[in-house]
Simulated assay, not measured.
Amino acid sequence: MRHRELVTTVLGDVVAPLVLFYGLRAVGVAAGPALLAGAAVPAARALWLLLRHRRVEWFAVLVLVLCVAGAATALLGGDDRVLLAREAVVTAALGVVLLASVFSSRPVMFVVGRLTLAESGRSPDDWDRRWASSARFRSIWRWLTAGWSAGLFLDAALRVTFAYTLPVDVVPAVQAVQWFAVLAVLLVAGQVWLRLPRHRELVFN
C-alpha cells in the first residue's frame, strides 16, 4: 500500500507537473502560466485528499495555499522565479516539522520506522519497550530525524538558489532531479546510520 502511495505521489506531484510544464512550453505558452498549470496538478490532488478523508491535513492545505499564492503572484505581475522558488516552502515546512519532533515523545522518523515495521508483519512492541528503556535507542532516532530535517532545509536552500540563478526553463527539470537525489541520499544515509555496528543490534534485533 505504501509503495502504491509513493508511486502516486511521484506521478502526481513530480512527473505530471513537469510533463505539463514542458508540454505547454513546447506549444508556446509563457513560463508563468505553464508553471501555474503544472502546480494545479498537485493542488488538485491535495484538494481531492482533503475531500476524501474529510479532515484537515496540514500538508495538503500547504500545497493549496502555495498554489493560490502562486496564482495571485502571477496575476499581480510577479516574477516567474517566485513561482519556481515556491517549492522550497514545502520542503522547508517539512524540515520544521521534523526538527520540532526531535525532542517530542516520538520523533517523526521513529514513527515512520515503526509503521514500516508493523506493515512488514513484525510487532513493534519491542521497539516501544526499547524506546521506553534505552536512552541510546532514543538518541538513534532523534539524530536520524535531525539529519532528515537538515537535508530538507538544504533542499529548500538549493531550490531557492536554482530558481534565481538558472534559466527559467531549466529549473523545473533540475528541481525534479534534485527531489529524487535528495530523497535517495537521505534514505541511503539513514540506512547507513541505522546499520552502524553500535546501532544495528538495538534497531534490527
Score class of each variant (00 low, 15 high):
Arg2Met: 13
His3Gln: 11
Arg4Trp: 14
Arg4Cys: 07
Val7Asn: 04
Thr8Ala: 15
Thr8Asp: 13
Gly12Phe: 03
Val15Arg: 10
Leu18Phe: 15
Leu18Val: 13
Leu20Val: 15
Leu20Phe: 10
Phe21Met: 05
Gly23Asn: 10
Gly23Ser: 10
Leu24His: 09
Leu24Asp: 07
Leu24Ser: 05
Leu24Arg: 07
Arg25Ser: 06
Val27Pro: 07
Ala31Trp: 11
Pro33Ile: 08
Leu36Gln: 05
Gly38His: 11
Ala39Tyr: 14
Pro42Thr: 07
Ala43Gly: 08
Ala44Tyr: 06
Leu47Thr: 12
Trp48Thr: 09
Arg52Ala: 14
His53Met: 07
Arg54Phe: 06
Arg54Ser: 13
Val56Pro: 01
Val56Asn: 03
Ala60Cys: 15
Val61Cys: 12
Leu62Arg: 11
Val65Ile: 12
Val65Asp: 02
Ala69Thr: 11
Ala69Leu: 15
Gly70Lys: 07
Ala72Tyr: 06
Ala74Cys: 04
Leu84Val: 03
Glu87Lys: 00
Glu87Phe: 05
Glu87Asp: 14
Ala88Pro: 04
Val89Cys: 09
Val90Asn: 01
Ala93Gly: 06
Leu94Ser: 04
Gly95Cys: 09
Ser105Met: 00
Val111Lys: 03
Glu119Thr: 07
Glu119Ser: 08
Ser120Ile: 01
Pro124Ser: 07
Asp125Trp: 12
Asp126Pro: 08
Asp128Gly: 05
Asp128Cys: 03
Arg129Glu: 15
Trp131Thr: 04
Trp131Pro: 07
Ala132Phe: 02
Arg138Ile: 01
Thr145Phe: 03
Thr145His: 05
Gly147Asp: 08
Trp148Glu: 00
Leu152Gln: 00
Leu152Phe: 06
Phe153Ser: 00
Asp155Leu: 00
Asp155Ala: 01
Asp155Val: 00
Asp155Tyr: 12
Leu158Glu: 02
Arg159Tyr: 04
Ala163Glu: 07
Pro167Cys: 10
Asp169Ile: 09
Val171Gly: 13
Val171Pro: 14
Ala173Asp: 11
Ala173His: 11
Ala173Gln: 10
Gln175Ser: 11
Ala176Gln: 10
Gln178Pro: 11
Trp179Met: 12
Trp179Phe: 15
Phe180Cys: 12
Ala181Gly: 08
Leu186Ala: 08
Gly190Phe: 04
Val192Leu: 14
Leu196Asp: 02
Pro197Phe: 09
Arg198Cys: 02
Arg198Ser: 10
Arg200Gln: 12
Leu202Tyr: 06
Leu202Trp: 08
Leu202Val: 00
Asn205Trp: 05
